[in-house]
Design a protein around this nucleic acid. Structure first.
Length: 445
RNA sequence: GUGGGUGUAGCUCAGAUGGUAGAGCACUGGCUUGUGGUGCCGGUGGCCGCGGGUUCAAGUCCCGUCAUCCACCCCA
């Protein structure tokens, strides 16, 4: 019934089974990232509003939840020129801006190259939809202090390993570089002033198609000659041969005159990641056909965040229309907070989207026993049984025991318990006095 | 921010053309059964999302509003 006890719009309560499942998946992600040499940190859920609205969050800034200043008066309200004047804090809309502040604040205590894990909720005041929530968990890894593709390679290998560990098949990471994107627009003849708008339209390529993108650019009044050039580029003759992520694949998909340095970087990145995925000892021919292409160069991958400066990534899966994660290099951001430029790059997994996509797996945890007791069994007996089964008074041996009053209809109860991960049960009537009297039965799924 | 669908018991849902509400499951009482969880009879539980309008009469029609889902926008 729709009433006033629902959680806030776009935010969710999690029942025990779902909460347990989320925690299991989170544990997999945490363990995988830690194994790759990253360290987990935590920052406050709110940041200074000024910092959130420093122009680094792109459109997300408009979606930030603000926190009103405490003790506002009517005079304050009247004196405010705009709503943000009444706000001094805001809920973070991503984990990258807080990380940049964190690094700027604690740089002296951190290693020269810092590898961070953040598994935490963020908030955006968007209209909720499938795969989109107003409060959602992001799983970020970032490498701060490493300027070269060494960092990107580590990020991608760790991310792919984590995706594997989660049991997600068929996902692909699309790769591009902000510098190639900008270079392409320049080559085609777009003015710098229209760059952002053009990129937003190009980003819709997978939805609108090539003709749709051209139409929208024309409708928006983009430089006609440049749009013509783009259309011609779309229509260029292309061989359909499949090329692995590397020098040839990148060149094939770019206009003439693209930045050679960037191409070389991306090609090296692809080679390194492929080598790591293949593992030691295996030859390329041995793995051909076994190892699907996990990286894919996409010259039209844009990513919304304005702060990206170099290689950018997006994790996609054929079963869902939205991305499962993304990231890229944001070399300028920390300098905004610290004064000194510090290179940084990161990758963020969309936890909610992974949870929604992954099949629910049974809880492989230790035995859990439910004792269904009759009303006439003394409380002391029940508590003693429970304590004994747990192997002592501390009861942290790994097993679980729950006391449940036996209802008239046990069928539903047993199904519920099974769904909660209980593996066995026993009836407890007044004749039971110690554990030896219990007749334990398996609780089938 | 824009557009569309939905909103009836704890849950899943019925309620053609307007006549003050039903089922299954869940919960619960009795008997039966006597413990992998039966059968029979009964019971609790509904401002039919909320507000307004039309009408003798609205769950049913109209308007508004809120919630939710979906599609845009944008994004994890």
């Amino acid at each position: 019934m729709a009433n006033q006890v629902n959680p806030p719009r776009g935010m969710r309560d999690f029942l025990p089974a779902e909460k347990a499942r989320r925690e299991r998946l989170l544990a997999v992600i945490r363990a995988s990232y830690r194994a790759h040499g990253f360290d987990e940190i935590e920052t406050p859920v709110v940041e200074d509003s000024d910092r959130l609205h420093a122009g680094l969050g792109g459109d997300n800034e408009k979606l930030a939840f603000g926190v009103l200043k405490r003790g506002l008066t009517h005079d304050d309200l009247r004196a405010a020129a705009e709503p943000l004047d009444l706000v001094d804090l805001g809920l973070r809309f991503d984990l990258t801006v807080p990380l940049a502040r964190f690094y700027a604040s604690h740089r002296a205590e951190l290693p020269t190259v810092f590898r961070a894990i953040q598994l935490a909720p963020v908030w955006r005041a968007e209209r909720p939809q499938k795969g989109r929530y107003r409060q959602f968990v992001q799983c970020d890894i970032d490498i701060i202090g490493e300027p070269g593709i060494r960092a990107e390679a580590e990020l991608l290998v760790a991310t792919l390993a984590t995706v594997d560990a989660l049991g997600l098949r068929d996902s692909v990471i699309r790769v591009n570089d902000r510098r190639l994107l900008v270079g392409m627009l320049d080559t085609l003849g777009f003015a710098e002033s229209e760059r952002d708008a053009v990129l937003i339209t190009i980003d819709k390529l997978d939805k609108l198609g090539q003709n749709g993108v051209i139409d929208e650019l024309r409708a928006n009044g983009s430089t006609p000659a440049a749009v013509d050039a783009l259309e011609q580029f779309f229509r260029r003759p292309m061989t359909m041969e499949h090329l692995p992520f590397g020098d040839r694949a990148i060149r094939k998909l770019l206009p003439q005159g693209a930045d050679e340095t960037v191409i070389a970087e991306l090609a090296a990145l692809g080679d390194a990641v492929r080598a790591a995925r293949r593992g030691p000892g295996a030859t390329e021919s041995e793995q051909l056909g076994l190892q699907p292409e996990l990286l894919q160069f996409d010259p039209f991958l844009v990513r919304g965040m304005g702060y990206y400066t170099g290689p950018i990534f997006e994790l996609s899966h054929p079963n869902v229309p939205y991305s499962l994660g993304g990231g890229g290099r944001y070399d300028g951001m920390i300098g905004r907070f610290l004064g000194t430029e510090v290179p940084a790059t990161g990758f963020s997994l969309g936890f909610e989207r992974l949870v929604d996509l992954l099949e629910a797996e049974p809880d492989g945890a230790a035995a859990a026993t439910a004792l269904l007791y009759d009303a006439d069994v003394p409380l002391a007996t029940l508590l003693t049984l429970k304590t004994e089964m747990l192997g002592g008074t501390h009861g942290i041996g790994g097993g679980r025991v729950r006391l449940v009053a036996r209802p008239k209809n046990t069928k539903t109860l047993l199904e519920t318990l099974s769904a909660e991960g209980f593996t066995r049960f026993a009836f407890v009537d007044a004749s039971v006095t110690d554990v030896g009297d219990l007749e334990l039965r398996a609780l089938g799924a």
